[in-house]
Design a protein around this nucleic acid. Structure first.
Lengths: 334, 334
DNA sequence: ACCGACTACTAACACGAGACAGTAACACCT
DNA sequence: AGGTGTTACTGTCTCGTGTTAGTAGTCGGT
């Protein structure tokens, strides 16, 4: 329809009656350049009139780098948590003039190859535990990598301190509240989030040992949702003799355990106490309300934003004291 | 550390002992070009050895367009639903050689301005109801816009057929199951998703009218989560005389209504039936299990992917019969 | 009157890739 | 022997920017 598919700075120059160089100087506030106000206004006027938007591709090519932050996330990742975090990240980085976008399917190498041929990020932020082959592909791009949820780098045996801490908090809480025996309930075994699950479990196990309790019994839900009667028999075994607490992988599992336990005639938290992870809205909407571990996404993400800025060289590395961003929300179930 | 910060096709050419043009021909499988296998292998070998990745910015600049699909979403949007959809979209478009990324904060014009200066998408997919000023900004870019959740364009009075249909399905279901009076429970009034809420309500209202029932009573939750005793009194008023059904904005609201009703001594679904929207995992984990309307995200997103491909000119517009992607999942609460 | 400094610009190059036009070298046919 | 065709390449221009080096014109001082 339009013969000229794109408005370039050349068009603006022609409209303003100056050279393209002058347009560039004006629009970028070039230092050491004296441009009279009349010329400036002419350029601004022409740019606005024509609806000029500089070409991102040309800018990036010329500058050798972009102002783009690329977050990569796997398909399976529960983004309810991610979501609030991304908004905060976007907000923080926008203030520094950077745009933030997210790509899914980032655990798929083929996806990544297409991505690299399509956008040129200044930095890559991984929202998951980066596998070696993915890391190698990123290295080749000569683009820095920041891992949002991991603190240690370099070794393939990285562990997620954040997830371990979550498990620790669950165990500490129930022990402090008098638990004598602890059961851990995991999601069905065929799921993708197995890394997170094992890290949280590790935190529970480690805490039990440190506090001198017997090792936890671990039960994986056998079906998809609600624990079966046999699951519940396993989970609640021994509740008559000792004060029993159930640490659950997340709030959905916790809800399933509570519902199944009540169906089996048990009382929560009387016969057993149950604690989840995530602090989903529904935790406050069921009876009993669910005690859970909440991760402070805004707090953590602000810290991630800081690390990103440092990696981009637009901020100084502040000697921030490492702190835990998760805390127990005490409710009725434990 | 490295003197050469980036491997270019020039480096590959030098390593393979050919010209840069030849490298381009080989790597892009240029038609009408005869390159002997030996040369091809030399080029491929050099490229692999050096870890060559073509510059996305240069490619885009040269081609005048990219293979990038940019999805824009507002900050407030619940992404639990979005998430599965994006994975599917990414998958579908990857098969066509396109990369898909998501930008949040897209309801903020300033965010968009930074985006345009940073990436050059081939198309923009809006996950929300695009305001006029945002639409104007996109128009200026000469980039096509596809609206993922809206079917009608052009007017500022666009309505979301999909959301209306959801409300319709709720109402049809409870009426078919014998409801004589219908109450609609909405989220607290100060939230951002008010558009969605009003569209769903519209579907309910319209259906009641068509089926000859009295207009629905509408109650907005007064607190943040659980309906207060006075809310519940309003919601359940009249359940003694008529069979009462409660259509809820979403599953969380439905759960709150159920819990509060039981606390007030009422039986669900005996005294009143309750239906939600979303089919959250917890719907199967509570007692009574929650009847809800599920939106077929994969189905809808495949159709969106098709629309995107048509807009990109890489697929023919198939005369797809418009269909509804939501359906009632029958459980115990209604 | 002349030199220097300052103002207000502009011509030209570089970034990295794709693609068109051109060109040596060689084979084939009559 | 000369024209035609094919093979296997390469030189050069282009995309839209930012930036460096340069250049007319004006002003001020001695």
């Amino acid at each position: 329809m339009s013969t000229k598919p794109r408005v370039t700075s050349y068009d603006v120059a022609a409209a303003a009656g100056v050279s393209r160089t002058t347009v560039s100087f004006v629009l970028n506030n070039a230092p050491n350049q004296s441009i009279p106000e009349s010329t400036r206004q002419a350029v601004f006027g022409a740019a606005k009139l024509l609806g000029y938007t500089p070409s991102a591709a040309a800018k990036t090519l010329r500058a050798g780098t972009s102002h783009l932050v690329l977050c990569i996330a796997p398909d399976w990742q529960p983004s309810a948590l991610m979501d609030a975090g991304l908004s905060i990240l976007t907000e923080e980085l926008r203030a520094a003039g950077f745009a933030t976008v997210v790509a899914k399917s980032a655990n798929n190498p083929r996806s990544l190859d297409i991505l690299w041929q399509t956008i040129s990020p200044a930095i890559i932020v991984a929202m998951f535990d980066v596998a070696d082959d993915v890391r190698a592909r990123i290295d080749r791009l000569r683009v820095p990598l920041v891992e949002a949820f991991f603190h240690s780098y370099g070794s393939r045996h990285d562990v997620d301190e954040l997830q371990i801490e979550t498990g620790r908090q669950q165990a500490e809480y129930v022990i402090d509240r008098g638990a004598q025996r602890v059961t851990y309930v995991a999601p069905p075994v065929d799921r993708d989030d197995i890394d997170i699950h094992t890290d949280r479990l590790r935190g529970v196990v480690e805490t039990l040992e440190r506090r001198g309790l017997a090792a936890a019994q671990v039960v994986a839900i056998s079906g998809e949702g609600l624990p079966s009667p046999s699951d519940i028999a396993l989970i609640t075994a021994g509740h008559e003799s000792e004060r029993l607490a159930v640490c659950c992988y997340n709030d959905d599992i916790a809800l399933g355990v509570i519902t199944a336990a009540r169906t089996a005639g048990l009382n929560v938290p009387g016969d057993l106490s149950v604690i989840g992870v995530d602090d989903l809205p529904m935790c406050q909407l069921v009876s009993p309300t669910i005690t859970t571990v909440r991760f402070d996404v805004p707090g953590h993400m602000k810290q991630v934003a800081q690390r990103i800025k440092v990696a981009l060289g637009i901020d100084d590395p502040s000697p921030s004291i490492p702190r835990s961003y998760s805390s127990v929300i005490r409710r009725e179930s434990a």
